[in-house]
């Protein structure tokens, strides 16, 4: 799916640009992409290293296992194939907690650790397991309860009530997450053979 999307993006962009006579813009875009990626990696590296370090302290102190125990009913419902006391549960719990609080840079390292840990339970490492699909869908549906960047942006542009959209955003976030979990759950149950 992703390979197809990736190739389609490049093809559509290149063909569209050439047809519109914007070869220069497309050419620049090809060369700029890598630069932007490296700039992104540079910004991300420091924060990710710092959070990974903090998470490691928590892991060694048993904080993640404690969190996973607290969330046991939810984790068992969402990830029935991940046994209790498996380290993946701790990483998943840490990723969810960081996402909910809006600590994006902390969510990524915890999420990547969760992926690696879920891979140890996976039979075929090139195909996503049910647990991996569910974990990704929850991350992709956005579970951040309160956004800070959007109200800050709104007040910067002179909004009379920058935070008035937060309750709507919370409801909308919950709807999209439930929809995602439901779709993933349904796909696990019904369309096992098809997809």
């Amino acid at each position: 799916m992703l390979q197809i999307l990736w190739a389609a993006f490049l093809l559509l962009g290149a063909v569209g640009g050439l047809l519109r006579g914007q070869a220069q813009a497309v050419s620049d875009a090809f060369l700029d992409g890598g630069k932007e990626a490296l700039e992104m990696a540079f910004t991300m590296a420091g924060a990710m290293a710092m959070w990974s370090g903090v998470l490691k302290i928590g892991e060694k102190a048993g904080l993640m296992d404690a969190l996973a125990k607290r969330l046991r009913p939810i984790l068992t419902f969402l990830f029935p194939s991940v046994p209790e006391n498996h380290p993946a549960r701790g990483y998943i719990a840490a990723n969810f907690a960081a996402n909910i609080l809006g600590l994006g840079w902390a969510a990524t390292p915890a999420g990547l650790l969760a992926m690696e840990s879920l891979q140890t339970l996976n039979k075929d490492r090139t195909i996503a397991s049910n647990a991996i699909c569910m974990f990704l869908v929850i991350n992709l549906s956005s579970i951040q309860l309160v956004s800070i960047t959007i109200p800050a942006l709104r007040s910067q542009y002179g909004s009379a009530a920058p935070t008035e959209i937060l309750s709507l955003a919370l409801i909308s976030t919950l709807i999209s997450t439930f929809a995602g979990v439901f779709a993933a759950w349904l796909a696990e149950k019904r369309w096992k053979k098809w997809i």
Binding site: Q119, T126, I127, C133, L136, A187
Partner: peptide, 16 residues
Amino acid sequence: VGITKSRHTIPAALFA
């Protein structure tokens, strides 16, 4: 983690 087949991940996420 080197997964190439994401199965229902993208459709479910798009639905969400």
